[in-house]
């Protein structure tokens, strides 16, 4: 088990993160203090959750570019509900967010499953549509902190056992996703559909439906994150989380989720997101302009995909017996 881990992508990523932390701590030792690490984790929680949702979609050889728009639309809707009915308890709003997010994901899923449109086209379309609808529902207006109810804003900040609820949400999501992909037939089907769609049909897996479910799950996660984002930053407007979908895909790619489907782990996605989160949080404290962040994450994506491609390269069928033994 340990041997396997050392050779794995995740180990490489852990190593990269440790080196990164080491470098940062030479400049600013306070960065690796537990308290600061907890705050980095909190700051990365939404990215982690979205990366997990994106991961199951990518596992099935699809991609969802609409997650950030979904997040923004759901966030705006729960924000508006909160303004209209400030007494509605947060759990109800969470339920609304999950349902709306899942519904938006289901629209993607149905177009991919039943109409057979390539996922990148579908979600490119819904990316602009969902974002545009925010304008329609809000009339372009902002929802500012003072319009939101106190409980609405307090929920993600509420501390339990030293960690804010936002971080706990990420932890719970990680556990649920672990159970989903490792211990449920649907989760295994994600891998099967992406790894070998042709063979998946032979084993009685409904490829289209599996993809549909991946989109619904990614959508539901985006919905939850919509509420968390709006309540955490205490503001909602048309452009929130604009372009965030690419950061989410970047987290997955850095985490070793193969864009060709079928390969990737929960640990990888989480580490990929953390890697980006650490860079984002570290730049200001080590006196590097935050304007470096984009270029750094871009380079990280390219390096990650190059490294992953090397390890994924398929071994050919080996005919000569001696070559097989020599391995």
């Amino acid at each position: 088990m340990i041997k396997q881990f050392i050779k794995s992508r995740e180990a490489l990523l852990v190593l990269a993160i440790l080196i990164l932390l080491g470098l940062i701590s030479t400049r600013f030792s306070g960065f690796i203090a537990p308290q600061n690490m907890a705050s980095v984790f909190q700051d990365t929680s939404i990215l982690i959750m979205l990366a997990l949702g994106q991961m199951v979609v990518i596992l099935t050889r699809c991609i969802d570019l609409s997650v950030a728009s979904n997040l923004a639309l759901t966030g705006m809707v729960v924000g508006l509900i909160n303004v209209a009915a400030p007494d509605l308890p947060v759990p109800v709003l969470l339920l609304v967010a999950i349902t709306l997010g899942a519904f938006l994901g289901a629209i993607n899923g149905i177009l991919v499953w039943k109409v057979d449109i390539p996922p990148i086209v579908v979600t490119l379309g819904t990316l602009t549509i969902y974002r545009g609808i925010i304008f329609l529902v809000s009339n372009g207006a902002w929802i500012n902190a003072h319009e939101m109810s106190a409980s609405f804003k307090a929920f993600p900040r509420y501390e339990l056992l030293g960690l804010p609820v936002l971080s706990w949400m990420a932890v719970v999501t990680i556990i649920l996703f672990y159970l989903l992909v490792v211990r449920t037939p649907l989760g295994r089907a994600f891998y099967a559909v992406g790894g070998n769609p042709h063979a998946a049909v032979y084993t009685g897996i409904n490829v289209g439906f599996t993809r549909f479910m991946a989109f619904v799950i990614a959508g539901a996660i985006s919905g939850v994150c919509g509420y968390l984002w709006v309540s955490r930053y205490a503001v909602a407007y048309v452009d929130i989380a604009g372009g965030f979908e690419l950061e989410v895909v970047a987290a997955c790619v850095i985490g070793g989720i193969s864009i060709a489907g079928g390969i990737g782990t929960i640990g990888g996605a989480v580490l990929g997101a953390l890697f980006l989160g650490i860079i984002k949080n570290a730049l200001p404290v080590v006196d590097i302009s935050p304007f470096w962040q984009l270029a750094i994450s871009g380079s990280a994506i390219i390096i990650a995909v190059a490294v992953n491609a090397r390890s994924e390269r398929k071994k050919g069928r080996i005919i000569l017996k001696k070559a097989e033994h020599a391995q």
Partner: peptide, 14 residues
């Protein structure tokens, strides 16, 4: 698709 998502960040990042 992945390469150019990366260079998309890299080029604008520069």
């Amino acid at each position: 698709i992945v390469v150019t998502i990366g260079t998309m960040s890299l080029f604008r990042g520069i």
